[in-house]
Design a protein around this nucleic acid. Structure first.
Lengths: 161, 161
DNA sequence: ATTGAAAAATAGCCTTGGCTATACTATCTC
DNA sequence: GAGATAGTATAGCCAAGGCTATTTTTCAAT
């Protein structure tokens, strides 16, 4: 810590291991950097599936941002290899983009379903899932899935004992 | 949508109501703006409780950022009325700051406990909670709390058949 | 083929939240 | 009380992700 060292037993009130906490915050900051990319890719996949194409204006409208903001972001997506773009033409997902979109969709769906399953209303689940999905680690997602499987015995077809 | 209107029945593949989606994204963007404030206030409260004071260097070390970054952020916290600062002296939480810290801590604790209760390991729960807590609405928190109450029958009181 | 509207590109600005480097106080020690 | 040192303040940089205003291109319709 600071000047007056305090290396003692540590009261451990709410202060956990410092290094661990740093890691949490670091991870959260990193997640934030990739959140937008994921949102874009997921949305683009949805738009293409739904209407055969994803235009900047539609993306902008869906995200609630201005078109130039989308244009700038698309450049980033291109440089990161998730989409391809032909000037004044459409946007296409690359292999990597499709893979990422698939992942995001599944994750999104798991989180949203999970929230619903514990009694959150669909509208709130949608909103909260939008924010939470990017912070759910693989382990947490597995736990969600396991819970869903337990809590939603579809009939009893996919028998689990 | 774009030029070719498409106002029909909408396949509704993955595309939900546009306005609703815009709201989700807007909300998520807004959350991001307050996340940092909350992390700071929560951490400052912890540091004060633990060591009697919260120094910039300690905050910086805990968050994994540089000291000037903290200094800049503290100015924002001051302007938003969460802390007070005496030049070259300590940092103190205002009434509002303490209230916010309390809220964050509780929320944080609920999310972390909840994750643990569904089988997520403590370390992962800590990391994920750090990112998720800011996106959990009041309703979702209530659901988490209710679940915890159900899932953690202090003895066997709240029997479930 | 022209033209006019819609979409995309571009220019240029702002704010936030990072950083380094450096200057300034306080405080502890001698 | 004079220095050294630790902590804080400040200056100035950068990248990301917003915005508005404007230009360029495409496309559809005449």
């Amino acid at each position: 810590m600071s000047k007056h060292e305090k290396i003692g037993p540590e009261v451990e009130s709410s202060l956990i291991n410092a290094d661990a906490q740093v890691e949490s915050f670091r991870q959260t900051r990193n997640n934030r950097r990739t959140e937008l990319v994921e949102d874009y890719v997921e949305l683009i996949a949805d738009l293409i599936e739904d209407g055969g194409e994803a235009r900047q204006v539609d993306i902008a409208q869906r995200l609630g941002v201005a078109q130039p903001t989308v244009a700038k972001m698309l450049k980033r997506l291109i440089s990161e290899g998730y989409i391809q773009q032909r000037r004044y033409r459409g946007i296409f997902l690359t292999e990597a983009g499709q893979k990422l979109a698939e992942l995001c969709r599944e994750r999104h769906h798991i989180v949203e379903s999970f929230l619903c399953s514990i009694g959150v209303s669909p509208e709130t689940a949608r909103i909260d899932a939008e924010g939470m999905e990017h912070h759910a680690s693989a382990e947490t997602l597995e736990a969600f899935k396991a819970f869903l499987a337990r809590a939603t015995p579809p009939r009893r077809v996919a028998g689990q004992a």
